[in-house]
C-alpha cells in the first residue's frame, strides 16, 4: 500500500474550553477522493485547517505528505491547493493577475505562472474573463477561479471546504464536472460538505463527523448498507394520524421513524411494505418508495435536531 498523503491519529483541537476536534483518526491514500461530512460546527473546517498547515493541533499525530505541519508548514502548503469555505480572492487584482500573483507566492517563476494562468483559465472556463475585476464575477465564476487558483502550484492534494455551498444547481454541476476531471487526472481530493448528493458524486470514501468525532466511515454505498436500508418508504397520513398509524405498522421493515409530517419505514423491499400497509387497512394520503440515500445515513448518525 502506498504511503498515505494524510494520516491523523487522535487529532484534537481546543479553542479555550471549546473542543472543536476531539480525537479524529483519518488516512487518505494518494489519488483518493475523501470527504468529511457533518453538520455545521462539527469540526470539519478546523480539521481542514490543521491538515492545511494553517492551524496547529492541540494533541494527536498528524502527517501531511509525510511531514509534520508543526515544523514543515511552508513545505506542506507548497504542495497543497486550498479552496476555503469563503472566497478570499484578491479583489484589488484582475482575474488573470489573481492566478499569476498567487503562483508567485509559491516562488514559481513569473513566466511559468503566466502560462499556468492561461491553462487554468481555460480549465475553469474563464478565458473570456481574464481581464475582468473579481467583483464583477458571478458566485459560480468566483468559485471556479478560487479552484483554479488553488491549482496554480500543481498541488498533490486539493482541499475544498464546502466547494459548492451557496451556488445554484447549474453552477454546482459545472463545478462537479471540473472536480471530477481533476479526480480522473489523479489529484487527491479532500472535501467537506453537508450536501449528500455532492458526497455521493465525488467521494470514494468519507467520514461522518459530529461534535468533533468520527461517527462512521466508508464508501457512500457501504455507509448506506450499514446505517440504512436499501429502500425507504415515506408515508403521509396527515399530521394528526401519523402517530396512531405508526403504532399499527410497527414491526414492518427494519426500522420506523416518525416525523411530524410523515412516517418513514426503512426496508429492503419498499413495495412489499406498501402492500402490507394497505393489507392492514391503512390508506396514507401519499406514499413514496425511494432508494436510501446518504442523507438518511447522515440524519440517522447526526440526528434531526437543528444545531446552531
Amino acid at each position: 500500500m502506498p504511503e498515505p498523503v494524510i494520516s491523523a491519529t487522535g487529532l484534537t483541537k481546543h479553542y479555550g474550553d471549546l473542543v472543536a476536534v476531539d480525537g479524529i483518526d483519518i488516512e487518505v491514500a494518494p489519488g483518493e477522493s475523501f470527504g468529511l461530512l457533518g453538520p455545521n460546527g462539527a469540526g470539519k473546517s478546523t480539521t481542514m485547517r490543521m491538515v492545511g498547515a494553517v492551524s496547529t493541533r492541540t494533541a494527536g499525530e498528524l502527517r501531511v505528505l509525510g511531514l509534520d505541519p508543526d515544523t514543515h508548514g511552508p513545505e506542506i502548503r507548497a504542495r497543497l491547493g486550498v479552496v476555503p469555505q469563503e472566497d478570499n480572492l484578491d479583489t484589488e487584482l484582475r482575474v488573470r493577475d489573481n492566478l499569476i500573483v498567487y503562483g508567485r507566492y509559491f516562488g514559481i517563476p513569473r513566466a511559468v505562472c503566466a502560462q499556468r494562468a492561461d491553462e487554468l483559465l481555460t480549465f475553469a472556463q474563464l478565458e473570456e474573463k481574464a481581464k475582468v475585476k473579481v467583483d464583477d464575477l458571478s458566485g459560480g465564476m468566483k468559485r471556479r477561479l478560487t479552484i483554479a487558483r488553488a491549482l496554480v502550484n500543481d498541488p498533490l492534494v486539493l482541499m475544498l471546504d464546502e466547494p459548492t455551498t451557496g451556488l445554484d444547481p447549474q453552477a454546482r454541476h459545472v463545478l462537479w464536472d471540473r472536480l471530477f476531471r481533476l479526480k480522473e487526472r489523479g489529484t487527491t481530493l479532500v472535501l467537506t460538505t453537508h450536501y449528500m448528493d455532492e458526497a455521493e458524486q465525488l467521494c470514494d470514501r468519507l467520514v461522518v463527523v459530529d461534535h468533533g468525532r468520527i461517527m462512521a466511515e466508508g464508501s457512500p454505498a457501504e455507509l448506506i448498507r450499514q446505517y440504512s436500508s436499501r429502500e425507504v418508504v415515506e408515508l403521509r397520513f396527515g399530521a394528526s394520524r401519523n402517530e396512531s398509524a405508526a403504532e399499527q405498522i410497527a414491526g414492518l421493515g427494519d426500522r420506523i421513524e416518525i416525523l411530524p409530517d410523515r412516517v418513514l419505514v426503512y426496508a429492503a423491499d419498499g413495495e412489499a411494505v406498501l402492500e402490507q400497509v394497505s393489507r392492514l387497512g391503512l390508506h396514507p394520503t401519499t406514499s413514496l418508495v425511494r432508494r436510501s440515500s446518504l442523507e438518511d445515513v447522515f440524519l440517522r448518525l447526526t440526528g434531526r435536531s437543528l444545531i446552531e
Binding site: 508543526d70 514543515h72 508548514g73 487584482l93 508567485r104 516562488g107
Partner: peptide, 25 residues
C-alpha cells in the same frame, strides 16, 4: 508550540512576491 520549525516556518524568503502584489494592486 513556540519553537515549531523556527525561522523556516515563518519565512520562505519570498517577501518580494508580496511587495510586487502591492505594486500591481
Amino acid at each position: 508550540r513556540e519553537n515549531r520549525g523556527g525561522l523556516r516556518a515563518l519565512y520562505a524568503g519570498n517577501a518580494g512576491s508580496v511587495l510586487s502584489r502591492g505594486l500591481l494592486a
